Amino acid sequence: MDKHSETKSKEDLGYLFNVEILIRNETNAKALQSLLQVLNQGEDIIDYKINSGIELGEIIESLLTEKKKSIISKSYKRLTNAESEKKAPEPKKTTSPFEQFAGSEEFQQWIKRHIADNRLVRLLVNRNGERISIPCRILNFLAETSTINVYHVDEKQVYTFNLNEIIEFSEK
């Protein structure tokens, strides 16, 4: 019995703490990146979960509102022009199915859900001619610049990609 109690006292134990941390920085994204760097440098930190404080996505909300207004006005103009002028259909631009999907309202809603739910996704990215598969969580998406910020769950780093670098999104 003595050996069993000695072994138990020598084992490493883990303790769970629930804390709130205030970080001063220029933006929420930079503050989040600072927090992640601090947490990743801690040798005794086994795992962590950020439950709140990620205030990214406000830009997405405003962009979605503007996009909806733009789509409605373009649709209205298109309908009035189609009625007044009948012309031959224009040849369609050749774009990949992903690029067509990425510009859609459905894609933006998908991104928004994944950001809000902090869902895990896998990105297949072509960066500098090299294909990289990244398990990540989406932090932010800027439609105006077609950029996406993701948190790489294995490397515990934040990356920014242009949509034209992304080959495929898949849900985990």
Rank of each mutant, 00 (worst) to 15 (best):
K74D: 14
I134L: 14
E66H: 04
I45E: 02
L163P: 03
E130H: 15
H114D: 02
E43F: 03
F107Q: 01
N149F: 03
G53Y: 10
L139W: 01
L142V: 04
Y15M: 07
N149K: 12
E26Y: 03
R127T: 10
F141A: 01
P91R: 11
K86L: 13
Q108M: 13
G42H: 10
I45T: 08
E99A: 14
V38W: 03
I45P: 03
G129H: 02
D117H: 07
G57S: 05
L139Q: 08
Q157P: 04
Q108C: 00
V153W: 01
E144Q: 09
L36Y: 03
D44T: 08
N149W: 02
E66D: 12
N128S: 15
R127C: 08
S84F: 12
V38L: 15
H114P: 00
E155G: 04
H114R: 08
S75G: 15
R127D: 13
V153I: 15
L139K: 02
Q37F: 04
K112F: 05
K156V: 04
S104F: 01
E20G: 07
N18L: 08
S146Q: 13
E43R: 15
V38Y: 12
Y15D: 04
H114T: 04
L56W: 00
H152G: 03
I71Q: 10
E99I: 12
S104D: 04
E155A: 11
S133R: 12
G57F: 04
S62F: 00
T80W: 01
S104H: 04
V158C: 08
V125M: 00
K112V: 00
A31V: 01
G103A: 04
L16C: 11
S75F: 10
S52F: 03
I45F: 09
I23Q: 01
E20Y: 05
I45K: 01
E6V: 08
I148P: 02
Q37I: 02
V158G: 02
E11C: 13
N81R: 10
L64C: 07
T94H: 03
E61S: 09
I60D: 10
E90K: 12
E43V: 13
K49T: 11
N40D: 14
L35A: 06
L64I: 12
N118C: 05
D12V: 10
E26P: 00
L63A: 10
S170Q: 15
K67Y: 15
L22G: 03
I59Y: 09
R131C: 02
T95K: 11
R24T: 09
R137I: 05
A29K: 13
E106H: 09
F17R: 09
R127W: 03
Q33W: 05
F17D: 06
A116V: 08
M1P: 11
Q33R: 10
E43T: 09
D117M: 08
N128I: 02
I46T: 07
L142I: 11
G129L: 02
E85C: 05
E58L: 10
